[in-house]
Computed example of a mutant assay.
Amino acid sequence: MGRTDLSRPLGRDGGRADERPPDAGARFAELPVRPYDLLLKAGCRLTAVLWSVLGMRRAAGVLRHYLRATGTPYRVDAAELLALPAVRYAAEEQLARWRAEAQGRWRRGPRTPAAYPADSGWRGVLLARRGSLDWWFALRGVEFRLTGTVRVAADGATNVDYRFAVCKNGNFARGARKERGESEYGIPFAVFARLHETGLAREFTVTGEAFGHV
């Protein structure tokens, strides 16, 4: 049987313990509804229909969930997200780091089969328009966290079992979105935050998970 390393997880440096909180803004239904707000909501409904017709079902689904104003979590296909080039690159960077750190610990030990827990912590990644316009309109960016185990064989070969989790709080909130690249195409997504602030829509948490072995 191999040994299990119970020290600090691999790859933990640089990641956050918790996902990023929503950007600051007015609370739900805190502001009065104006005629403009009703027009904005009607325009958003038409936008969701247009996106659906154009085949952008993910973007349409996220916007419709926002307009329902339930505030319930919205689950996305994390495996599809993981297949996007920007997300895949960020994840593979962490997996490569896990392997390197695992082999470093293994070489300092008795060099017998060993297993090392790993945890990237929460990290942000911006979605590229070129990767998928559908996903970009839907989320524009997400937080992800990889957790898993790196196993090192007696000959130093490695394999990894991992869980890939995604999360996003406040998809349309006001704040520093522009600084994080979420106002591309000249679309000020924070404008839609007023629908939450007037109670005509409601922010929610996006979640999802996928599992893999490499």
Rank of each mutant, 00 (worst) to 15 (best):
L63Y: 15
R3S: 13
L63H: 14
W135K: 03
A78F: 05
R34W: 14
D23C: 02
T47Q: 13
A173C: 14
R111D: 00
D5A: 05
R99A: 14
R107K: 14
P21Y: 09
G121N: 10
P188K: 06
D77C: 15
V191K: 08
R68F: 00
N169M: 02
D37Q: 06
L31T: 11
W135L: 07
V76N: 09
A29N: 10
K41E: 02
D161K: 15
A118W: 05
A91K: 12
A29E: 00
L10K: 09
G61I: 01
R16M: 12
R180A: 11
E179D: 10
G104T: 14
P21K: 13
R151M: 01
L81Y: 13
A42W: 08
E93C: 12
L195F: 01
G208L: 02
G156N: 01
A79P: 02
V206K: 07
V150L: 04
R3M: 08
G181F: 13
F28W: 15
F189V: 11
Q103R: 15
F28M: 02
T70H: 07
P85M: 10
G181Q: 13
A201H: 14
F144T: 03
N159W: 15
M56C: 06
N171P: 11
G25E: 14
A69L: 02
A138Q: 09
R34V: 13
A128T: 08
L31G: 10
A24P: 14
P35I: 09
L146G: 00
D37R: 12
E143L: 00
G208P: 01
K41N: 00
V214Q: 08
